[in-house]
Amino acid sequence: MHPFTYTQANDAREAVGAGRRGGRYIAGGTTLVDLMRETVERPDTLVDISRLPLREFNVTKRGGLRIGALVTMSEAAAHSKVRSLFPVVSEALELSASAQLRNMATIGGNIMQRTRCTYFRDVTADCNKREPGSGCAARGGVNRAHAILGTSESCVATHPSDVAVAFAALDAQVHLLGPDGERTVPFLDLLLRPGNTPNREHALRHGELITAVELPALPRPLKSGYLKVRDRQSYEFALTSAAVALNVSGGVIREARVAAGGVGTVPWRLRAVERALAGERPSDRLWSEAAAGSAEGARPLKHNRFKVDLLRRTVERQLRTVGDMA
């Protein structure tokens, strides 16, 4: 591990000040500490933000929900408002990691976790994300777990989070505090596709800190759920996953939100699927037809070709599951 100094921030202003001076924020530490052990991450300064008062659960005036950045995954998953208003978020969280990790890891950190690409995590391998210009070992290597959507010549690593897929589907907003004050960005704009700069993973400005994630009010009744497909039944990242939220009234789908995980370099919103659903009446045939376009634009690699078909099947299954509830 590269030597580092550790400071604890007592309030948000102090944290942002330290962040502006180049400090890396640490809360649960479940991803950063691992990567520091592997020397993939070599921060000189860690700024511990775990004492900051960022643990809110507030229903907004319009009926959305603000979740503080330091709320743990397990707290968020168990919260009655999350469970009743956005089951897809609860389910995504509960299907993530292990109980021990969910007790430590925070919502803000979860969004910011780095890829599980094994070449990224092995400092002796070429990786443009870790070392710009060194090349991408995964493209021609062992890449069963890698992305088929949003990839570039430079990078094919997936974003590993489950709850981020739910956030993408729900059009979450992210509240930030930085040296220049507060601002809010749509979650979908926060995480960046790799392009030629896979080392740039997010749109945070220097020193900016996530303070909360806001789930907007959506037309009710809203039925939602998350399906995670993986080899073993627990404690594994997704091969494919689907977050689905449907508003059905008068027998017609008024609004559909669909996003996929395990397949994209960022959580992948499936707009074409949503378009195919809007205004239609639920039926098995509709689920099948709408899901057909799930992997549109996919560029599979040697070992993950099966994900193209598996993604379609995953989305179709989850449309049916949520659709049967709606």
Binding site: T118, R121, A125, V142, S234
Partner: peptide, 22 residues
């Protein structure tokens, strides 16, 4: 990884053993 003989899943997140749920 046959290009350089590296074991690409030399960790327990990628080399899967059964967990209780399995």
């Amino acid at each position: 990884d046959h290009r350089d003989g590296r074991i690409a899943n030399a960790n327990l997140a990628d080399y899967l053993v059964p967990v209780h749920a399995d």
